[in-house]
């Protein structure tokens, strides 16, 4: 059996275990309300967003509906994977895994894929439902290119949150600490990043919150590259030509690559040295 196949088979087992876990049964209805629910709401022909804005295209509606991913799916990713390493470590099962001849780097990749797929599959199903809802409400399908960007950037943001949480789980001996780190990080990037942006703008002498001020828009766009949620929105905005925040597509995708490779590498290195 090739290494690739072995990783695939192990990750599949981990995926099924987490995807059909009690916590997923609890979280799935929440995701159902968040993701297709937002798609339904934002595709309402009479909706008026703050500033009197009305979404014009189906991709724009799905862009706004991506808030469901940012608020719901990322939190589910954290809750699904916070104990992936710490629980096994506390129970002694990790020691058994570490004594197996399968290289630890391969075990780590299987663990990443397993946790990722467990949240990715339900989220993608809900995204597909959302696309159908938008089509039904607006009478317009999104293009194939839009669809690819929408699904792949959602996959990436979920992977980033999974990776941060796995890293925290591998460093902490208590599951409570791991979940505190995951939830804290979620709060930082979901709610507090605006505060960080404001503080940097204040320190830089840029007028805060002026949507028509180019300096503010550029600063906000640049700082968003340092946040997974911000990069996610930058990636989605590559399909919305009417939005211009001074960040080129290649910059968004490059940062996406950095957010993927760096934590993956850190997690694999960590697992290669972890002690039971």
């Amino acid at each position: 059996m090739s290494d690739f196949k072995r990783i695939y088979r192990l990750s599949k087992r981990l995926t099924l275990e987490r995807m059909f876990s009690t916590r997923m049964y609890i979280m799935f209805p929440i995701l159902l309300l968040f993701i297709p629910g937002m798609a339904w709401g934002f595709s309402d022909p009479d909706i008026v967003l703050p500033g009197g804005h009305q979404p014009q295209t189906s991709m724009e509606v799905l862009f706004y509906a991506s808030l469901g991913v940012v608020f719901g799916a990322t939190m589910c990713a954290v809750l699904l994977s916070y104990d992936a390493v710490s629980r096994e470590r506390a129970s002694g099962v990790l020691e058994l895994r570490l004594s197996q001849p399968m290289p630890r780097s391969h075990q780590s990749v299987a663990m990443m894929l397993g946790s990722w797929q467990a949240i990715l599959i339900p989220t993608w199903i809900l995204l597909a439902i959302s696309v159908g809802i938008v089509r039904y409400r607006m009478g317009e399908w999104i293009s194939i290119a839009d669809c690819i960007v929408y699904f792949s950037s959602t996959a990436l943001i979920l992977l980033w949150y999974i990776l941060f949480t796995l890293l925290a789980s591998s460093y902490t001996r208590e599951q409570g600490t791991a979940i505190s780190f995951g939830v804290g990080m979620w709060f930082l990037f979901t709610f507090l990043w605006a505060l960080v942006t404001t503080m940097v703008a204040f320190a830089s002498g840029v007028a805060i919150g002026q949507e028509n001020d180019a300096a503010w828009v550029m600063l906000e766009g640049a700082l968003d590259l340092l946040s997974p949620n911000g990069v996610y929105h930058h990636l989605l905005e590559t399909r919305l030509p009417q939005i211009e925040r001074g960040i080129a597509s290649w910059q968004s995708w490059s940062m996406g690559l950095v957010w993927t490779v760096l934590p993956s590498w850190l997690f694999i290195k960590r697992m290669e040295k972890i002690l039971p």
Binding site: L10, G92, L96
Partner: peptide
């Protein structure tokens, strides 16, 4: 080497056979 650590506290909803199969994957 086959290693049997002290007091492994197996827990979770998965079955005994599933748990063993999962580690069996690592040894092919």
């Amino acid at each position: 080497v086959g290693h049997m650590p002290e007091q492994v506290r197996w827990q979770g909803q998965k079955s005994v056979r599933e748990a063993l199969l999962e580690i069996a994957e690592m040894r092919q």
